[in-house]
């Protein structure tokens, strides 16, 4: 499904702010893998997801997705294969546009955008039903501007937008970090449901170790631009937060308090 080989990325090379963000990443994902990613601040987690999404070109290595070499494919074309939810609830939606317009934009991900109507009647009915299943009370506010929604509602909406055209790979970058605990739990629950129902392959960054253990079938830990720990199957299921903490201090990493609590 996803094949990363020897990925390197250095920001601002040659200057005093030079940062080697990715230093030789090799990663292979099977169809249906749901991988959680943990690691300290600046470990390169977001950089890894951005490299896969094509936000900027990588320095070295190759990225294969669903059998295609996408290493040189620009971000907007790669988007046809990817669903993305970001840490900041503002990033994933267009605030000045209506809920139904945002959904309609997402429904056309990877398709040609022509001179047909953006939101048809049939679509509106479909969106209504989809929002009912989210259970956030958004189904009756289809024509409300997204800017009026709460952070949690926006993240749930972004998640729906990321998956309504089934992505080959779903990228979640700390998508619950900006939410209060109760809302975060709700959005995580929706995430699990969407991934299971659609049998999606997913990468999810989280700062919460128990979430990282609880969700998905595989866990990787990053430090200084490298993957330093990779577990799956039974071994992952039996992990405890203490195990992860120990593993982490072994590689010389440092976790914030936020990661331990939670």
């Amino acid at each position: 499904m996803l094949d990363l080989k020897g990925i390197y990325k250095t920001f601002n090379p040659g200057s005093i702010t030079e940062k080697k963000a990715l230093q030789g990443i090799d990663l292979h994902l099977e169809d249906g893998d749901f991988v959680t990613i943990i690691g300290g601040n600046g470990a390169g987690k977001s950089t890894l997801l951005n490299a896969i999404a094509g936000v900027w070109p990588i320095d070295e290595g190759s990225i294969h997705l669903a059998g295609l070499d996408v290493t040189a494919v620009p971000e907007h074309k790669r988007a046809a294969l990817l669903g993305r939810v970001f840490q900041d609830p503002m990033t994933g939606t267009a605030a000045n546009m209506q809920i139904e317009e945002n959904l309609a934009l997402a429904a056309r991900r990877g398709k040609k955008r022509g001179l047909g109507w953006e939101v048809t009647k049939a679509e509106r009915a479909k969106y209504h039903d989809m929002l009912v299943s989210l259970d956030l009370g958004l189904e009756d506010r289809l024509s409300a501007k997204v800017g009026l929604l709460s952070g949690g509602q926006r993240q749930a909406l972004t998640l729906m937008m990321a998956t309504m055209v089934k992505p080959k790979l779903l990228l979640l970058d700390e998508h619950t970090a900006a939410l209060d605990p109760k809302t975060a739990a709700k959005v995580l629950e929706i995430t699990d449901k969407v991934i299971n129902e659609n049998k999606l392959t997913a990468l999810m960054i989280t700062h919460n170790m128990s979430d990282a253990i609880k969700h998905g079938n595989r866990l990787i830990m990053m430090n200084e631009g490298k993957i330093v720990y990779d577990v799956s199957g039974e071994e992952k299921k039996n992990l405890t937060v203490e195990d992860l903490m120990k593993k982490f201090s072994e590689v010389g990493g440092h976790f914030s308090d936020r990661a331990i609590l939670g």
Binding site: A79, T91, A94, L105, A106, K111, A162
Partner: peptide
């Protein structure tokens, strides 16, 4: 309109 409103979102939607 999406491009004017939120470039990151527009790109993520292809």
């Amino acid at each position: 309109r999406a491009t004017g409103c939120n470039q990151a979102m527009a790109k993520a939607q292809g």
